[in-house]
Structures are given as structure tokens and as C-alpha cells.
Simulated scan of single mutants.
Amino acid sequence: MKNYLSFYYLLQFCGNSWIFTNMTARLLFFGKDSFADTFYTIGMVMQACQLLSVLELLHILLGIGQQPFMPKLFQVTERLVILFVVITSQEEMQSKCIVCFLFFLWNLWDVIRYPSHLLSVLGTDYPALTWLNHTLWIPVYPLSLLAEVYTVYESLPYFESFGTFSYNMVLPFAVSIYFPYILKAYLTLLPAGMLYTCSHLFSERRLYLKVRNGKMKMK
């Protein structure tokens, strides 16, 4: 199982590192012009990495992952909804600057998070990386949630115009599903989920700092 987890975290690190490096290089070479085709350049790899992250929920259920289930469920679900439902389904959204910004924030944390988990599985502690993993999320995670909210807000006119995922079904009684209403309801849930996840991450950071300070006092 140790070998499997090591391979999984290494695979995720390689995928997210490729995305982050590609985005950074394109931004340096092409500037703002790189925003328009960010999704077309890295979208497939991003989709693969986010789909693979579903396995982290399975790891927890099988007892080989140490994180609580609900915070991880929220983190995985929010990204899948934004990436596949909001961005992928609306071609007009894929060239927006906010998509580039959002992908950058997601990968900025992931290129630190996955190698930190990999070293933990291997029984190796690199203090600077571990500290960064428990600290970088403080600015990055709330910013990514704001970017997700803005992405959903930007997508609403397209869902309203094209009627994507909106249906009128004739059953024994008429049922109408207007997807923009569902997205607006989803927007109200994001802040609550963020507060819950941040509370968990703060608890993890507090425990990490307590253990680290205890070790330093013993030296």
C-alpha cells in the first residue's frame, strides 16, 4: 500500500508540476495573450489530475488515507463542479482570464501539497516543505474560493442564454429544472464549505506547530 500511495502522490505531483510550469512559462513568454488558450493547452491534464483526486476519497474510506472525509469531499467536489460543470460545459468560459487565475491557484497549492504527502508516506520529513504545506493554504485557499465564486458568477449568463442542463420534463406532473438557480444555490454553499474546511486546516496546522515546537524544545 505504501508503494501505491507513493506512486499516486508522485503521479499527481508530476501532473500538477507540468501544469504549473506550462502556465508560468506561457505567461512569461506571451503575457496576457496566454490567458485566452490556457484551457485548451492544459485542460486535458487538469481534468485528469482532478479526476484522479477522487481516489483520495476512496483512500480515506479504505483506511489508507489519514485525512477526515468531509473536508476532503468538499475540496474534491468543489473543483470537479467548477471544472467540469461550469468551465468545460461552456466554451465561452474557457478563454476567460479568471480560468487561468483559478488554475494557477489550484496548482500553486498542489505542487506543494503532493510532494509533502509523498515524503510523509516515505517516512521523510523536510521541515521547510512541511511548514509550507501547512501555511500556503492560508492565502491561497480563500483566494481560490473567491475565484471559483467569480467563475460561477461569470458563467451564469451563458447558462441562462443556452439553457445548458436546464430541462422541462413531462412526468405524471410537469417538472422544470432551471440550472442557473442551482448554481446560485451552490454559491451560497461555497462560503459555508470554505469555513468548515479552513477550520479543519487550521486545526491541522495548530497540531503540526505544537508537535514541531515540542521537538525543538527537546533539542
Rank of each mutant, 00 (worst) to 15 (best):
W109I: 08
E91H: 07
D125K: 11
T130W: 10
G163R: 09
G163I: 05
F162I: 12
L108G: 08
L119D: 05
F101P: 00
E160I: 07
V99L: 00
D110T: 09
I138H: 01
F165Y: 15
Y141N: 00
S161E: 15
C100N: 10
V99Q: 01
L118K: 00
Y158R: 13
N133K: 11
W109G: 11
S166W: 07
F162S: 11
L119P: 01
F103G: 00
L146C: 13
F159V: 07
N168Y: 09
D125Y: 11
V99P: 00
V149G: 07
L136M: 10
D110V: 01
G123C: 03
L132E: 04
Y158K: 09
T151W: 06
F162P: 04
Y150W: 13
N168L: 11
T130Q: 14
I98P: 01
F101G: 08
S166C: 05
S144Q: 07
V149F: 13
L119R: 01
L145H: 15
M93S: 05
K96Q: 13
Q94Y: 02
Y167E: 12
F162E: 15
T124F: 10
V121K: 05
F162Q: 15
F104Y: 09
L146G: 11
L122Q: 15
H134N: 12
N168R: 14
N133C: 10
F162W: 11
R113V: 06
A128G: 04
L119I: 01
L119Y: 12
V170N: 14
N133R: 13
T151E: 07
N133A: 12
H117C: 09
L129C: 05
W137Y: 10
T151R: 03
C100K: 04
I98L: 04
Y150F: 11
T164V: 14
L129V: 06
R113F: 11
L129M: 09
Y158S: 08
T151F: 05
V99N: 01
V149Q: 14
I98D: 02
L122W: 14
F101E: 06
S166E: 05
S120F: 13
F159I: 09
L122K: 12
A128V: 08
L145Y: 13
P127W: 03
E154G: 02
S120M: 12
Y141F: 04
C100I: 06
V99H: 03
T164I: 15
G123P: 01
L156M: 05
D110M: 11
L143T: 12
T135W: 07
L108Q: 01
N133E: 15
G123M: 03
L136A: 13
E92G: 03
Y114I: 02
L108S: 08
E91S: 14
L122T: 05
F162L: 15
R113H: 12
Y126G: 02
V121Q: 04
F159N: 07
K96S: 12
E154I: 09
L156Y: 04
N133Y: 14
W109S: 10
L108A: 08
